[in-house]
Amino acid sequence: MTTTVPMILLMLGCAFVTWLPRVIPFILVRNIELPDVVLRWLKYIPVCILSALVIESLFNAEGAIVTFDWLNLSAFVPTLIVAVITKSLSKTVVVGVVSMAILRYFF
């Protein structure tokens, strides 16, 4: 049970700024009827944000030129194939982790 008061304050600060964006929409939509165009826009969010999270991880932005992250890209290929074929979350995660472990072992 070791921590300090500043550390707890820091964590509480981080917790608060994480909590706000999660909760505000749930309060907002109770009081405001969202226009039809916004609801249609929101239908695109799942695929867009999931794609963006995956694609962002396939790039390496550390150098002067943005390149592929070859290691992640190599592990991504078998992962995507298994996801498409099995449509199973757990199988995809296992294949992803194992692929990455094998790649890291050799490179």
């Binding site: 999931l50 794609s51 999270l53 995809t92 992803g96 982790v97 194992v98 692929s99 890291r104």
Partner: peptide, 23 residues
């Protein structure tokens, strides 16, 4: 922990969820 490939689990999960949403 990195060499175990565990960090890739998140990306793999997003990938599977994406596919499930497109099916």
């Amino acid at each position: 922990a990195e060499s175990w490939g565990l960090d890739f689990a998140l990306i793999a999960m997003f990938c599977a969820l994406l596919v499930l949403n497109l099916v």
